[in-house]
Design a protein around this nucleic acid. Sequence first.
DNA 1: CTCTGTTATGAAAACGTTATCTTTATTGTA
DNA 2: TACAATAAAGATAACGTTTTCATAACAGAG
Lengths: 345, 345
Amino acid sequence: MGVTIKDVAKAAGVAPSTVSRVIADHPRISASTKKRVKKAMKEMGYHPNANARSLANKSSQSIGVVMPAGADKALQNPFFPEVLRGISSIAHKMDYSLLLNTGESTEEILEGVQRMVNSNRTDGIILLYSQLNDPVVNFLLEHDFPFVVIGKPYERIDEITHVDNDNVRGGKEITEHLIKQGHERIAFIGGSTDLVVTVDRMKGYQLALEEAGLPFLDEYRIHEEFLESGGQQAVNELFALPEPPTGLVVTDDLMSIGVVSMLEKCGKLVPEDISLVSFNNVYLSEITRPPLTTVDIKIYELGLQGAKCLIEKVKNKSEPAKRIIIPYQIEYRASTKEREVPFYK
Amino acid sequence: MGVTIKDVAKAAGVAPSTVSRVIADHPRISASTKKRVKKAMKEMGYHPNANARSLANKSSQSIGVVMPAGADKALQNPFFPEVLRGISSIAHKMDYSLLLNTGESTEEILEGVQRMVNSNRTDGIILLYSQLNDPVVNFLLEHDFPFVVIGKPYERIDEITHVDNDNVRGGKEITEHLIKQGHERIAFIGGSTDLVVTVDRMKGYQLALEEAGLPFLDEYRIHEEFLESGGQQAVNELFALPEPPTGLVVTDDLMSIGVVSMLEKCGKLVPEDISLVSFNNVYLSEITRPPLTTVDIKIYELGLQGAKCLIEKVKNKSEPAKRIIIPYQIEYRASTKEREVPFYK
DNA sequence: CTCTGTTATGAAAACGTTATCTTTATTGTA
DNA sequence: TACAATAAAGATAACGTTTTCATAACAGAG
């Protein structure tokens, strides 16, 4: 079972090496034998064995994709399938396979990555997240293994090729949108502060507030894992404040949906009672009620460029570390509203 | 670069074959040499080369995961990351890698699968969808290649191992919930009828109607790809009917969110004006407004069992085709409401 | 003591490619 | 016409494992 290069060679009356050269489209092969060999390959239904190739080549033609550790709901974020689509588009074009790695814990993830790398199963790795003190990044750096991160690395940023948005500016701009609409008390609801993306978006939020001379209050910042059920309480607290916010910056569309629904439980409507802006522009944010004003970070493009950089890096190990910033684009939809200024003002 | 089995052998003063036996935990190896070899492996930082193993073994220890063709939004369904999680959990446990295949078109998918199979990159394949006349299924059957489908195969059902829910019964039961609440005009909104899952759920819907003596009307069935923007019009038409429905069965949570929001545009509130039930119980359906009454199909479990069956099949090629039905569980939430019977009745 | 049978190892042949040398034809040049 | 240069193809050695077959050591049986 399985026709090999030798079989083809015999059938075409040439040496295996010649067949190999035909496969590789080597220049010094006569048109006639090339044709003959190709014919034999087709007739016999020959397909090169990838493992043998990888062994001889020391290259697996596959790239490892690492998802963050998420024992639960966190991975249900449509962000992931969408980056995967972007990555896949390039991988397919360049004839690379995709090796997927997930895990329930950081240790599991690390272990998986180590296996991929040590066993020569993959030529390069693409990280779909970036967090504080990531052992995976350290491992890859130590081993001088080609990788790129989607997002901004936490440290050694100049040594790590990454594809990111300008989340600080995005955060600033989207907050400014709220400010322009007359909002003065704007709260921030974000994911874990271990995630670089959360920190960046919050920085932008802070910057906008400061420039506008608005207060940047601790009570206005919530870093719950909103995907967990604890969110309701946090929202309650926010509105128990003497001066509750009228605007909300939320770092993720999925999270926003949860927030909108919690707000409603508190009797607050978006955008009538409170305005909300968000990030990612996942398909969801368009069909939800209200459609969200959100920073479109071009997820597909992030994946695509990430894969592209990685493949470049794999092909040329001395390729210098790059940073690629994908321009975001704000989608203005219906989740914000001009603030009605109290008449006595 | 890279310490090989030979290096270890030399260091431990044994033959490569002995090292190999130690790795495989062969019984006929003395405790002393086993210890010695293991020590050498550890000291030298030895890791077996997966490609070489695969070549010698004729087994790649990896399974291919095939996502449906979706050029666009369709893949943003959180269903996918969640099945992946389930698959991954088992794969990890059994030391299998995951090879991911996506594509924009059916041809691209098929091509990818053929490459995986022909090149010996994968030991088995798991399909994350099931549709009418799938060339991928045909290819795999023809080549007698181990695979399982998540969902119900369109044909040759007894020859194909698959993991599914009883979608007919689920569809029936959830529709009955609506009926019990007094709804008599119930419409169905589903994805493509090329998808077996759509057809099954609709069958259940139909069954429930018939048993209750309610009409099963063509005008009450919409098979738009709701993920595309055309949905609004379909909903409009539904409510332009002389007798518009008061209940809605929608085949997917993501789609439901779109529907709820379209309904609102038509001035209809869920559940006040119209009740809606759905399928999947994706995390989203819990945090949306209103939280959806939905059939929890246990996505994680589907993936997990699928992977388990596949690995069994890979290990034992003569394993007979199985069908595994994962019990669903209806989550009663707030998207339906007792129908107020008009007083004259 | 020899002979047979285990038990623990080693030697060497796969596995299916690619890549490095050779070798053999085929030119072109003096 | 002879000789170097080039083009096309073959032989063969990697690549790093596993596995089959062979063998040495040693125990137990007669």
